[in-house]
Amino acid sequence: MAQSKGWVRRYFKAFCKGFFVAVPVAVTFLDRVACVARVEGASMQPSLNPGGSQSSDVVLLNHWKVRNFEVQRGDIVSLVSPKNPEQKIIKRVIALEGDIVKTMGHKNRYVKVPRGHIWVEGDHHGHSFDSNSFGPVSLGLLHAHATHILWPPERWQKLESVLPPERLLVQREAE
């Protein structure tokens, strides 16, 4: 009986040591390197959630790539909503700082993206709450870069950084 209690005690002690090492490592990884997120809504159709409300894509979010605000036109990014800091949204980067973009429904027909900001839009115009509603977004609100669709299995793929042909830039500021 004493021998079985010793085994349980050793097991419990080893479990606790592993737990107290694994949890901080896992939290750090999920916070600083990568995590997964479920995409809800129709704003990024057809790139994400092409099946509408009956399906939700699950994407891999890479925190590492945006740590130095390294984004390109066409990247799909996760960011803190400028209107609701409790919410994260996922959109496509249309323009970078210094770019002049032709808007779609914004109060100004053309907008020059200020320094330290980006212009983001959903792929499904008219069903997206994006920069056309709230203007350029501060780079400080960037959360992660969406790199792959992980679920459902039949949609597993790498997400490409492409600008829709109708969203090409009006002008890029001379560097």
Rank of each mutant, 00 (worst) to 15 (best):
S128L: 02
S78I: 08
G51N: 10
L142E: 06
M104V: 13
P164D: 11
E86K: 11
E86R: 14
D99Q: 04
V33E: 03
S81W: 01
K102N: 11
V21C: 12
L30W: 14
C35S: 15
D130V: 01
K102F: 04
A34G: 04
V162R: 13
S128D: 08
E173N: 08
K88P: 06
D99G: 03
F69T: 14
V71I: 15
R155Q: 15
N84V: 06
P153R: 13
V101I: 14
L168Y: 06
H106V: 06
S138P: 07
E40V: 00
V71Y: 10
R115A: 12
I89L: 14
V39S: 07
G135F: 00
T147Q: 07
L79D: 05
P164S: 12
P165D: 12
S4P: 11
R92F: 06
L60T: 02
V27L: 15
M44A: 00
H145T: 02
K5V: 11
R92C: 05
G122R: 01
P165L: 08
I89V: 11
W119S: 13
M104I: 15
P136S: 03
K88D: 07
H127P: 03
R155A: 14
Q72E: 09
R172I: 02
V77H: 06
Q157P: 09
H148S: 03
D57Y: 02
V25T: 06
E86I: 08
G126D: 08
V111Q: 00
L60S: 03
A34L: 05
L61F: 00
M1H: 08
F134N: 02
R109L: 12
A37T: 10
T147S: 10
A42H: 05
R92E: 03
Q87G: 11
V36A: 09
L142K: 02
A26V: 04
L30C: 13
R92N: 03
L60G: 01
G122W: 05
E154G: 13
A42F: 00
R32I: 14
K83F: 01
N62C: 02
R9P: 10
E173G: 11
L168H: 09
N49H: 06
Q3Y: 10
